[in-house]
Each structure stands twice: as structure tokens, then as C-alpha cells.
Amino acid sequence: MKHKIIIAITGASGSIYAKGILDKLAANPDQYNAVGIVMSKNAQDVWETEIGDKSYAQYPFTFYGKQDFYAPFASGSAQYNTMIVVPCSMGTMGRIAAGISDDLITRAADVILKERRKLILVARETPYNLIQIKNMETITLAGGIICPATPSFYSKPSTIAEVAATVVDRVLDLAGIKIDTYRWGK
């Protein structure tokens, strides 16, 4: 089955993770029917600071405004089956955990959870406070997946991009996208 994927990019640090996911999705168009992107203004500013350009606008995906409640994935009837919030700010996570659907990102997450589909939040904060941990618990109990942007090192990454790819590849694995990546024991 091909995926219909929502990518939400919030203003947390970690644009390298969002860029990596968009790059790998663009390189594997045979694995999805649609990719819709919602990107906050803060996310654009952080991308421009961390990546150094506005390349987010050059991807072959459909972009939706944060207040565009006419986007297809604002309703379960559009049958988007996966949502990745990358990086996921703690504010966005808190609104999702509380069921506050005040923009397209939180509405889409609410729809994904109510339809029992796959929600993956790439949390980007450290350390966590108790409120954040309880929000993670709430989302997990509701069926979401919390995937902190915690890189692994057993593949012996040697560049920042390779370190970030350990997180990107894990997220894409969770989403069911088949990619060529390091596998333990091979």
C-alpha cells in the first residue's frame, strides 16, 4: 500500500531532520501517493538559520498554510495514513496531547489519532520536564509514537549529516517507508 503522508515542521531546532526526511521522500516517490507539508513561520526562520537557505520551498510536495482547514488531511475522509511532526516543539506536542486543534498541524494530528493511524512526533528538546513527559505519555496512550531526535552511533557516522540520518532513517522506518540504511547485524 502506498502512503499518504503529512509532514509538519515546527519551529524547534532540528531542521536537518526535516530536510533529511524530505530529501529521502523526494528520492522515493514510488512509495507514496501524496505528501502534504505544513510548515510554521518559525520553522521557516529556523530552517534559514540552521540550513542557511530557503530550500524548503523547492520540494515537489504540496504545501499548506497553518490555518488552511480546507487541506485534505484536516478530515479523516481524505485517508492520510501517516503524519510525521519533525522537529516537534514541546508547545506543539502539548497542544496535541491536550486535544487543542487550533491550527492545521494540531488538527491533522487530532485526525490521525482519532482515525487510529500513525502519528510520529520527533521530539526536539532536552532535558524534558515532567509536563513534557506526561504529554508524551498521553500521546503514546492515544496511539502516537514519540521518537526523540536521539542519534545512534553504531553505524559509525562521520559527518553531521550522517549522524542526523540515523534519526531520519529510524523515523522513515517507523513510517513504513522502505529505505537503504544501516541495519544492525549486517
Rank of each mutant, 00 (worst) to 15 (best):
P148G: 02
T92H: 05
I145G: 06
P29K: 15
E125V: 06
Y64F: 15
G76D: 06
V168G: 00
F153W: 09
E125S: 00
Q67D: 13
Q132G: 03
Y64A: 04
D53M: 09
I96D: 01
L174S: 05
F153D: 10
I100G: 01
G76C: 02
E50H: 13
A161Q: 15
N28K: 12
Q58L: 12
T10K: 09
C147I: 03
I21L: 05
V171N: 00
Y182P: 07
K66C: 11
P72S: 02
P148S: 01
I16L: 09
G185Y: 09
Y128I: 02
A26K: 13
P151S: 15
I51S: 00
I5Q: 02
N81E: 04
S55A: 12
S40P: 08
K54I: 13
P127I: 00
L104S: 01
I5H: 14
Q31R: 08
Q31Y: 05
I131M: 11
I177E: 03
F73Q: 00
W184A: 13
A123Y: 09
R170P: 00
D180A: 14
G185H: 06
A8G: 13
H3F: 11
Y182Q: 08
E48H: 10
Q67N: 15
I179E: 05
M90W: 04
T126A: 02
W47H: 11
M90F: 07
C147E: 10
V85S: 01
D180S: 15
I6G: 03
G65S: 04
S13Q: 05
A43Q: 11
V111Y: 08
V111F: 11
L104C: 06
R95W: 11
R183Q: 13
R183N: 13
W47I: 11
V35P: 14
G20P: 14
S13G: 06
P29N: 06
M90V: 14
L174T: 03
V168M: 00
L25E: 03
I21E: 00
P148E: 02
N81K: 14
E162Q: 14
Q79L: 05
T106I: 04
I179C: 04
L25P: 09
R117C: 10
T49L: 14
T62Y: 05
G76I: 04
K4E: 00
A18Q: 10
E125I: 02
M39P: 05
E162G: 11
S15G: 14
I146S: 04
S77K: 12
Y17N: 07
F61Y: 14
A78E: 08
I9N: 01
T138D: 02
S155T: 14
G65F: 04
G144I: 04
R170K: 15
M1E: 07
T150M: 11
D102E: 07
D180M: 11
V35E: 01
A108C: 05
